[in-house]
Write a protein that binds this DNA or RNA. Sequence first.
DNA 1: CATGAATGAGGGTTCATTCAT
DNA 2: GATGAATGAACCCTCATTCAT
Lengths: 164, 164, 164, 164
Amino acid sequence: MEATFRSIAHHGFEGLRLREVAATAGIDHSTLHHYFPTKQDMIVAVVERATVPLYTTIPAGSSPGDRLRDHLRILAEMIETEPDLFVVLAEIDLRARRDPGIRAILDRVEAGWRLGLEHLLDRDTTRVELVIATVKGVRLDPPLAREVLGHLASLLAKANSSEG
Amino acid sequence: MEATFRSIAHHGFEGLRLREVAATAGIDHSTLHHYFPTKQDMIVAVVERATVPLYTTIPAGSSPGDRLRDHLRILAEMIETEPDLFVVLAEIDLRARRDPGIRAILDRVEAGWRLGLEHLLDRDTTRVELVIATVKGVRLDPPLAREVLGHLASLLAKANSSEG
Amino acid sequence: MEATFRSIAHHGFEGLRLREVAATAGIDHSTLHHYFPTKQDMIVAVVERATVPLYTTIPAGSSPGDRLRDHLRILAEMIETEPDLFVVLAEIDLRARRDPGIRAILDRVEAGWRLGLEHLLDRDTTRVELVIATVKGVRLDPPLAREVLGHLASLLAKANSSEG
Amino acid sequence: MEATFRSIAHHGFEGLRLREVAATAGIDHSTLHHYFPTKQDMIVAVVERATVPLYTTIPAGSSPGDRLRDHLRILAEMIETEPDLFVVLAEIDLRARRDPGIRAILDRVEAGWRLGLEHLLDRDTTRVELVIATVKGVRLDPPLAREVLGHLASLLAKANSSEG
DNA sequence: CATGAATGAGGGTTCATTCAT
DNA sequence: GATGAATGAACCCTCATTCAT
């Protein structure tokens, strides 16, 4: 539900109110329960919906180095274009610590991301985690995303070439 | 209040309950209101207390490169030693988005951090933000912190030397 | 509706849920409202259906004493065979106190019962009420019904003969 | 709570509303939860309170026959004087069928009653159960209680003497 | 005739806060 | 200063009922 997504982005899970969501969506709050029997059900649905866009951010073709640069550029652009999405993802990260259901979804998504990154980084898991950490760390700060992620790509590329 | 800090670490701001905090601290929940008239007052106090440890993580002496490496190593060790602190800091980051009072405290703390990092990174603000982002991104994952931050330090050192 | 009857027997009027009844009956809950526009309508129907079996429990023929004994034996057997029926009847007794519609039905049924008993008890209304009270009091306890009602029949027979 | 007791007597467990009880008692409905955290807690308290008066209805002294007659007379007077009490007891009987907590309380009370009656009825459990059933059956009908229970006492006395 | 989406009143419960003691 | 009784707003959820299809 779009309204739920926006509510989490604006008020966090802490401020998620079913009545407000229903009002925003222009329906009765009881109708919400018709589709999502419980609040948790809706949260799960929103989490699954919010994590979907990440699947398509690793481009195909070209060399690993170029694909990594493109991947980070795409992510930076998404952070700029759709900042709410990354706010929600940050909320999800925190909530996953106390919600096994969310934890499972997040683990699955991140496993896919890690797998993709490993192909781009010569299976160097340390660098994979470095990339993930930096993306997660910059995602709440759209104005910095492109610059920071671009620099990270350069750093990794330079290090790679100097090794070769 | 220590009990409040732990409660936020375990249940988030979302699950922060004054009665539970009071029970943990072994006092009556009304007594809490003697010290902190409102819940927000206590949150502010905890946020100020939680952000203090960051002030002392930039070591003195030696060369900028060594100091950066030491700084990141100290942070990694803190993430391992006191993971709750960084969980709370992540919670604060999110809450600052909707709470101007918290926002102000956080801005002040981060300004100090940025200032310190600029001295270590030759005033290269991009790299300053890269370091900040990576620390923030890895802070919820203690097992990875040392490895990721160590690698970042290496990358930055190598890039610096190849430039010079 | 059979499903409604069973639901009242198991959960009482307190736990009577139209959706549950519909699910048990294998139909949509909206379809219920085609047959019974309102919940009260269905309750009335069930009450009328539940009170029917009592009409046929006073056997014909033989002497009043034998007929009373047979009547009580038949009731005891029904309590053993169809305990749910008497649970529902007990529920109805209570509900009749606050529901004039149910009250009217119940009054009519009990008037018929009283009339029948009067023929068996020489128009001694005190004994009529004694029999009714005992039946009502034992109806929730199937294992005791036969024994208690049998003893009551003996007592009444003995008293009658010693008077005559 | 007196208000809860009256509410059950008037509307049954089915119509027991915490807000109404609180309003009748002249307090906020939240205050109710201060003393009874949950609705069930209050119901249990009321059930325990409602079953207490039954403990003192078996008089001491004199012969078993007289004591039985007195016991039934006292009960009949209570049914006339405090009809609400016996309405609530009837409600409890029904609720005990689906509520193990209530079941336990009721079993304990009835065990005490049975024990007392056994002393008055020469350990004839059939007659004990007959008395209990009749009392339970007449308790919702105050105008009949004295007459019916009085007649039962006579019947039992007469049968006893004719046996001796 | 049957469905299921939609409603809205109302249910028990939670919780930060207040106030008399 | 510390307590706990009391408050009231707000929460999620339930359920009989309605209405368009």
